[in-house]
Simulated assay, not measured.
Amino acid sequence: DWGALHLEQDLAAHPGVAAAGYSCFALAMTIGRLSGTTLLERLGQTPILVTGGATAAAGMLLGALAPTVWLALLGFAVTGLGLANIFPVAIERAGALAGPDGVATASTLGYGGMLLGPPAIGFMAEWFTLPIALTSVAVLAGLAAVIGCTTRHR
């Protein structure tokens, strides 16, 4: 959500190009979700979580710290691909481990993060800079990869 502002203010993108930041992210996430079932069948849950988290972390670092608009747009697209299947797999794993209560807890945390994430990034941008605040998404995506790796045998 903050990508357009980052592109316009930090990288001097035209407002129309800046608006494309979210579009790149959303389109890539859609493509990732549509191919998710095939990837899960071929690779399994753990590789999807670990690779997705690592890909999203790298993409968000590129999106947040890129010196040019086009590299930032590429970073947002890579982030969308990486994040595309993390949430559905996490919900499925929570259901397998803890049943309906696990699904409810994971859903609450996931949707809570979507609601609280943008304001948290805004506060961090006020304290630091928007590019630094956006790197928090990369840190959380990397954490998802680590969690996916460490919980693979449970």
Rank of each mutant, 00 (worst) to 15 (best):
P15G: 09
A138T: 07
L49G: 01
F25Q: 01
L11R: 01
G110V: 09
T79A: 14
G113K: 06
G44L: 12
G63D: 05
H6S: 03
A56T: 12
A141L: 11
L143G: 05
V78T: 11
I121E: 12
W70T: 08
L62P: 04
T108P: 11
V103Y: 02
F128Y: 06
H14F: 01
P119D: 15
S23A: 09
F87Y: 04
G52S: 06
G75E: 13
I147W: 03
M29C: 00
T38P: 00
P15W: 14
V89Q: 02
A58F: 14
L62T: 12
T129M: 13
A72D: 02
G82H: 08
L34R: 09
A138F: 09
F123K: 13
G52D: 03
A66S: 08
A4W: 01
L134R: 10
Y22R: 02
D1G: 06
Y22L: 10
D1C: 03
A141C: 11
G142L: 13
D101T: 13
A90Q: 03
G32E: 10
G59R: 11
D10S: 08
G82A: 11
P100D: 15
P131A: 10
G99N: 04
P100R: 15
G75V: 15
D1L: 10
A20C: 06
F123N: 07
S107T: 15
D101P: 07
G82E: 14
A28M: 04
A57I: 12
G44Y: 13
L71T: 07
S136I: 08
A26E: 03
G21I: 02
A77I: 08
V89M: 06
Q9G: 04
D1Y: 11
G52L: 06
V137K: 05
S136T: 15
A58S: 04
I31G: 00
C149I: 13
L109M: 12
W127K: 14
I147N: 00
A26M: 04
A145I: 10
A56Q: 00
M29V: 01
G110S: 11
Q9S: 02
W2Q: 02
G75P: 13
C149N: 13
V103M: 12
A125D: 11
A19Y: 03
L81I: 14
G148I: 03
W2I: 05
W127V: 12
G59I: 04
A12W: 00
L49K: 08
V137Q: 09
G75Y: 12
T135F: 10
T108E: 12
P47R: 11
E8L: 02
D10C: 01
L74V: 06
G142W: 06
T79D: 12
N85G: 07
C149G: 07
A12P: 00
R154V: 10
V17C: 05
A54H: 01
R154C: 10
G63A: 15
F128I: 09
T37K: 14
A145F: 05
P67V: 01
G113P: 13
G95C: 12
I132L: 14
T135V: 14
T55P: 01
A104T: 15
C24P: 00
L65I: 08
L73Q: 09
G99E: 08
G75C: 13
P119G: 14
A98V: 07
I86P: 03
I86V: 14
E41Y: 09
W127H: 09
A120M: 15
L61W: 04
S136M: 15
H153A: 13
G63F: 07
E126R: 09
L134Y: 03
